[in-house]
Nucleic acid binder design. Structure first.
Length: 278
DNA sequence: ACTTCGTCCTGTCCGC
DNA sequence: TGCGGACAGGACGAAG
């Protein structure tokens, strides 16, 4: 999916267009996503004003005052802002039409998701107590994600560090791409057991996760196949991957071929010279 | 309590 | 050119 940088890029792209606008129509063409799209979404949303677009982990949360619309992009989802009539493409599952009361302009927020691993759900209570969001770890770009937190959290975990930082109850937003990239920058082997990392290791890893995610956000995220931002453009961070999707190619630091292993059924890229197991 | 694994989908790519 | 299988950004929930 879209990992944190792609979701954040989407949030920044849609917010100026939809905040303050009022829902005028909702069309659900394909309700079968990861969970069924909340039935009666049209009557729930029409007439309501969207106050704010928020992000928690990889979830987008559209604040309608009397509830939130939760949107998850799954593996292949994207949201686009359309200001002119645009031909429907395959897998364009949901349209939410808005009218801006200030200038009377209308736009469409269009949800597209070929693999349908995403979710669009109405949450009547505050999202923080929703089962999907209640157990999430800290946001990586806040001070709550720091070396002391990570060290204490991981001291009992024997899972490989790469699997661990992808665990959304440890820290949110880090997916398969940014896990490999952050570990390379930290010179930590992806199979290193989480509970064997020192406080110094944790300090370095925290810094590199923050740095990697920030750089990716500045690059508009990464596009492997499906991801596009709210204007339909691809990201750019894939052009500066140091290890992800580079199996067999030379390490940017030492030229040794990048290795590919599977951890928790996910492809994992690293340099066995720069990232030695301890 | 922790950790691993199967699963939900469609599309693409690779080897035969 | 066609076909089967593996794999792709996630993460829940069952099984071990």
């Amino acid at each position: 999916m879209p990992e944190l940088p792609e979701v954040e890029t989407t949030k920044k792209g849609i917010a100026p267009h939809v905040e303050g606008a009022i829902v005028s129509a909702v069309v659900v063409r394909q309700p079968k996503l990861r969970w069924p799209v909340t039935p009666g979404l049209d009557s729930l949303l029409i007439g309501k004003r969207l106050l704010k677009v928020e992000r928690r982990a990889k979830y987008l949360l559209l604040d309608f005052g009397e509830g939130w619309l939760l949107i998850h992009l799954g593996m292949s989802g994207s949201l686009r802002v359309l200001t002119i009539d645009t031909e429907l493409k395959k897998h364009d599952h949901i349209d939410i039409s808005f009218t801006d009361p200030e200038d009377n302009r209308s736009i469409i927020l269009r949800y597209h998701d070929p693999r349908r691993f995403g979710a669009v759900l109405w949450i009547p209570d505050h999202w923080s107590i929703h089962p999907l969001l209640a157990k999430l770890g800290p946001e990586p770009l806040t001070d709550a994600f720091n070396k002391e937190y990570l060290y204490n959290k991981m001291r009992t975990l024997r899972t490989p560090i790469k699997t661990t930082i992808m665990d959304q109850s440890v820290v949110v937003g880090v997916g398969n791409i940014y896990a490999s990239e952050s570990l390379f920058s930290s010179k930590i082997h992806p199979q290193q057991p989480a509970n064997t990392l020192s406080v110094e290791d944790c300090e370095l890893l925290v810094r590199e996760i923050k740095q990697t995610l920030q750089l990716a956000i500045q690059s508009g995220g990464s596009t492997l196949r499906d991801y596009v931002n709210s204007a339909g453009d691809t990201g750019y961070f894939q052009h500066v991957f140091k290890v992800y999707d580079r199996a067999g190619e030379g390490c940017v630091v030492c030229s040794k071929p990048i290795e590919l292993i599977r951890l928790g059924q996910r492809s994992t890229f690293f340099c066995s010279n720069c990232q030695s197991l301890r």
